[in-house]
Design a protein around this nucleic acid. Structure first.
Lengths: 142, 142
DNA sequence: GTGCTTGCAAATCGTTTGCAATAGC
DNA sequence: GCTATTGCAAACGATTTGCAAGCAC
């Protein structure tokens, strides 16, 4: 069970709840919010509380086991993929896409940060996603 | 008066409140929150309401006259400098620093965005700032 | 049984909404 | 006078807190 090992790797003591939340994050790379996770797990874990979801996600991000994304002004979103990559938020449909981090950027970390010690990097892009763009084309009257 | 012209440039009809808020943003490039701005202006504008500050900042960011930063999970911060640059948040003191956007990154926009139409770019770094680092050194017992 | 984890209910707080009062052309 | 802007009070909603109960070693 991958999620279990993932917790150990990040010095997080496993519990039923923690395993379930990590598993959900790893199996559903859709950048869910705390509420999304609670709603998804609640049916199969009726005693799960939202507080536990919040506590657990906070723990994960502190331990580096998940990324806390603040790309969407309305919600905090979570990502089990902690490798260096960028995110794109569609202003129309609200989806968050993963983007390869452009090669040019990868070199940049820890270089020329003006003396600050960097431990987290977030590259956010916002606009209209290609799916919403193509819907525009379909319905346009030329 | 610079802030007045700035509003016109972005098709924002000037008003006392809008001018004051833009002026505060331009004169205080400390990435204030809505509440910071309200608190700062309130003494000299006793009838100013927080609602107006929120409405105005929303308008500014929609019109491209200011950036809405979501680097800090707790607060939304605003920046009158809309040129391409990065931000660094110190986890210890909470300050947000402007950073030159590394040359390598500047080229990247609108390139290889996987077909998505990008209208906003946010580069966020988090960690411990150089000032907090040097305080650590002073008090360390070697 | 000690300490960590969980979960409920209540509180918090930044932000938004509804709507009436006001200002500007 | 008509339209946009402002501001108050109330609502909202995501997240946090206090604390009691449960679990694990």
């Amino acid at each position: 069970m991958k999620s279990y090992e993932r917790l150990l790797e990040h010095n997080i003591k496993p519990s039923m709840q923690r395993i379930a939340i990590m598993e959900y994050l790893m199996d559903n790379p859709i950048h869910p919010s705390a509420d999304d996770i609670y709603t998804a797990l609640s049916p199969s874990m009726p005693t799960l509380s939202k507080t536990t979801v919040y506590n657990t996600l906070k723990l994960f991000s502190e331990q580096g086991a998940a990324l806390m994304l603040t790309i969407d002004e309305k919600n905090t979103n979570f990502d089990a993929d902690t490798s260096v990559h960028s995110h794109f938020l569609c202003r129309r449909c609200g989806h968050i896409y993963d983007l390869k981090c452009p090669e040019a950027i990868k070199q940049v970390e820890n270089v020329d940060m003006d003396g600050h010690q960097v431990s987290e990097v977030h590259y956010y892009y916002k606009g209209i996603c290609k799916n919403c763009l193509s819907k525009d084309k379909e319905t346009r009257i030329d």
